[in-house]
Write a protein that binds this DNA or RNA. Structure first.
Length: 419
RNA sequence: GGAGAGAUGGCUGAGCGGUUGAAAGCACUAGUCUUGAAAACUAGCAAAGGGGCAACUCUUUCCUGGGUUCGAAUCCCAGUCUCUCCGCCA
């Protein structure tokens, strides 16, 4: 959320930044609302002062006047709160501003590659897709999921289920032991306020699964990513700078409607309503955001290095970035069957954008209270990593070699073959 | 599901109709002392918003929303959340 103060003080800069995002914002309307809002506040405060003075004097002859003032105040109050609400609703649906080094462009075609790494495997045969491999092994079952649940779900069975768990555990171990992240096992549902805090609400409500509770309780949503719940751990708090940075990692299921992607990736488990993801979240002083983003991205790519999976790192263009991000790196892993790279991680700095929505602050060493910086990144998407392992480690007979680093997690199994 | 208790500043915790933005303690910051540190002492220390070039000043805020009153952290109503005990249950 952008603060109206910043917009008021520097409308041109703001307008320019908004253009980079290729969205329409009626800046004039915002400024007009702000002006009216402040005018009403002034009028209201003058009356409030008057009223306060009367009650301090305790002069009975003025009591009647004070009553009249109260009525006037409540009129101004009503008027002002309407304007304030409108102003806030506009402000809350404006995305974060892209940083200077973010390539400008309206969609993913303007994303820029930073580097490629790893050896693309050569096959003496035509490499199969992960779902052909998984179904061949009888360890991925999409039809069964359709029967029990519906489309975009999958049963992972037997050794592949174990492999999926091995991947998540390997990632968690790496991030906790080597990268300084604290492991969290969080709730998988979040309140509407938390969803607002990280930016899923109000604009992207259609992508979220809402859970029906008893009528008296507040709205709750299945988390689309652990980012929501981990980031909101500092919501409405004032953190001591000595406790920063906070680095959190969680392996959780994620739930997404994928509303806007009908017909996209309908085959296989690339795009599911439910998938496991190991998520990294960092809470830092705002001036540390960019350094932390590099660090976090390195933590993510290290997993791929260890798994010996080929990947490339790209920086997203201004138009392709998520709502809350000011700068985003995507990591894309090589999928032989598609003969291209596919997203497996996305690491973003959100600057103070989410913190302002969450009212998450910290005291710096001058004892001043400021908004925190927040970052999030996948480290990595477990389901897609499973896909990448299947496809990159496949043999001609449809069996899957186990990456060396995962063997301790797989009882030293070398290979997954059909039973 | 039944019966109670509570929600106050970064934290703990007083206040229960009138300079209370709010005692006290802890934490934090600065200073004195010390070779340094600790301890002790002294001082400072809430947030949001408005006005002003600024010094500064005004308003709001004691869970949320209503109400009573000239005046509410304090009284009344509704709601949310938390805790304790009993029951039920993974």
């Amino acid at each position: 959320m952008h603060s109206i103060k910043d917009i008021r003080q520097n409308p041109d800069l703001f307008l320019e930044n908004i253009k980079k995002r290729f969205i329409n914002i009626d800046l004039k309307k915002i400024l007009k609302l702000d002006e009216n809002n402040r005018k009403l506040i002034q009028q209201k405060e003058t009356l409030e002062k008057e009223k306060k003075d009367i009650s301090k004097k305790k002069d009975k002859s003025l009591f009647e006047k004070s009553k009249q003032i109260s009525e006037k105040i409540s009129k101004f109050n009503d008027e002002q709160s309407i304007i304030k609400k409108e102003l806030e609703s506009i402000l809350s649906s404006i995305p974060n501003i892209a940083l200077k080094d973010v390539p400008i462009g309206k969609d993913e075609s303007f994303n820029k590659e930073i580097f490629k790494k790893g050896e693309i495997p050569e096959f003496s045969f035509k490499p199969k897709s992960h779902y052909e491999l998984g179904e061949g092994l009888k360890m991925l079952d999409f039809d069964l999921a359709t029967k029990t649940t519906g489309s975009r779900f999958v049963f992972v069975k037997d050794k592949l289920a174990q492999l999926e768990r091995a991947l998540a555990n390997f990632m968690l171990d790496t991030h906790t032991k080597n990268n300084g992240y604290k492991e969290i096992s969080p709730p998988l549902m979040a309140s509407d306020a938390s969803m607002f805090g990280t930016g899923q609400l109000p604009k992207f409500e259609n992508d979220q699964f809402e859970i029906k509770f008893d009528e008296s309780s507040g709205r709750k949503f299945l988390i689309p990513t652990a980012e929501v719940i981990l980031t909101n751990m500092v919501k409405e708090q004032i953190i001591n700078h000595k406790d920063l940075p906070m680095r959190l990692v969680a392996s959780t299921p994620c739930f997404r409607k994928e509303a806007g992607s009908y017909g996209k990736d309908t085959k296989g488990m690339i795009r599911q309503h439910q998938f496991y993801k190991v998520e990294l979240v960092s809470i830092v002083e705002p001036n540390q955001c960019l350094d932390e983003l590099e660090r976090m991205t390195n933590c993510a790519t290290k997993i791929l290095d260890d798994l010996k999976l080929p990947y490339k790192k790209i920086i997203l263009s201004s138009g392709d970035m998520g709502f809350s991000a000011e700068k985003t790196y995507d990591i894309e892993v090589w999928l032989p069957s598609e003969n291209k790279y596919r997203e497996i991680s996305s690491c973003s700095s959100c600057g103070t954008f989410q913190a302002k929505r969450m009212k998450a602050r910290y005291k710096n060493n001058n004892n001043e209270t400021n908004f925190l910086g927040t970052l999030n990144g996948s480290g990595l998407a477990v389901g897609r990593t499973l896909i990448a392992v299947l496809e990159n480690y496949q043999d001609k007979d449809g069996s899957i070699k186990i990456p060396n680093i995962l063997k301790p997690y797989m009882n030293n199994l070398d290979k997954i073959t059909r039973n």
